[in-house]
Write a protein that binds this DNA or RNA. Sequence first.
DNA 1: CTTGCTGCAAACAGTTTGCAGAACT
DNA 2: AGTTCTGCAAACTGTTTGCAGCAAG
Lengths: 146, 146
Amino acid sequence: MILQKKDAFNRFAAKRGLRSTRQRDLILDVFLSSHDHLSVEELYLKVKATNPGVGQATVYRTLKLFVEAGLAREMTMSDGQTRYEHLSAGEHHDHLICTRCGAIVEFEDATIERLQGEIALRHGFSITSHRLDLYGICPACKATPV
Amino acid sequence: MILQKKDAFNRFAAKRGLRSTRQRDLILDVFLSSHDHLSVEELYLKVKATNPGVGQATVYRTLKLFVEAGLAREMTMSDGQTRYEHLSAGEHHDHLICTRCGAIVEFEDATIERLQGEIALRHGFSITSHRLDLYGICPACKATPV
DNA sequence: CTTGCTGCAAACAGTTTGCAGAACT
DNA sequence: AGTTCTGCAAACTGTTTGCAGCAAG
C-alpha cells in the first residue's frame, strides 16, 4: 500500500524530471505513515523530530508536489490552516468534523454522490470535484462534560 | 425583506447593548443590497465607494456581528479568502462553484440533507451545520474557449 | 460624562518566494 | 559541470488587535 504510493510518486517524479532527494523521501515516508488530515505544521514537526535540518518551506513545496502527483488532497479548514489527506486514485470520501475536539471521521455515500451528479447536470455544470463536511459534536465529546 | 433583516439586526443589537452607528448601518445596507458571497475586500470597496472614511477593520468587525446576529454565513474559500453570504433563519443552501470564472450557484436538495442526517446518526454525531460545495465548470465557461 | 466604536497602523498566522550554497545526476 | 533542490530569512496576504480620539446614549 505504502510502497504503491511511493512508486506512484516516483513515476510522477520521473515523468516530470524531478530529482530524488533525501528530504522528499523523508517527507513522503512521514506523510504516508501518518493518520490523515495533517496540517503542514504537524507534518513539519514530525519530520523535524527525526531530521532537524529540514525547513518548513520544503515541507510546503513537497506537499504541493504530492497533490500534483495525485497522492494527497488539500483541504482549507475554517481556522485558516490547510490540511492534507491521503488520496488514492479514483477514491473519494467526505468528512464528519467535530467542532469541539477537531476529530475528523471519513464516510462515503454512493447515493449522495449520485444526487450530486444529478444536481450538476440540472445546472449544466461539469463537476471535477466536491467537498462535503458535516460539522457537529462527536460521540466522545457528547459523553464528556464541557 | 431587507427591512426584515435590518429589524433582525436591530433586535440583536438591542439585546447585546450594541450602539447604532453610521458605519454599521452603512455596511448593513451595502451587504443586504449586494449579491451573495462577497469577500470582505469586495464589500470594503463597495462601502468605501460611497463613504471613503470607513476602515477595513470596521468591515471585518461588523461582518462578524452579522454572523452572530444570524444574518450572514462565513465561508472559507480555498484561495484563503473568507466570503459572506446572506442567511435567513432556518434556511440553508449549498453551492456549485465554477473553478474557471468563480461563479457561485446555489441549490438545495432535501434528499441529500436527509441522507446527511442519517450518516450523522450512524456515526453518533449531532450535526450543527454542514457545507457542500460542488466544483466544476459552469455552462457559460463551457461555451467559452479558454 | 461615560463607555463603546472607529480608523489607523502595527501585529499576527499561514504561506510563498528570492537567493546563495548544497546536492543530485 | 550543470542544474535542481534546500534552508534561511524576508516578503506577502488575509485577518486581528492596541490604542488614541470620536461619537452615541
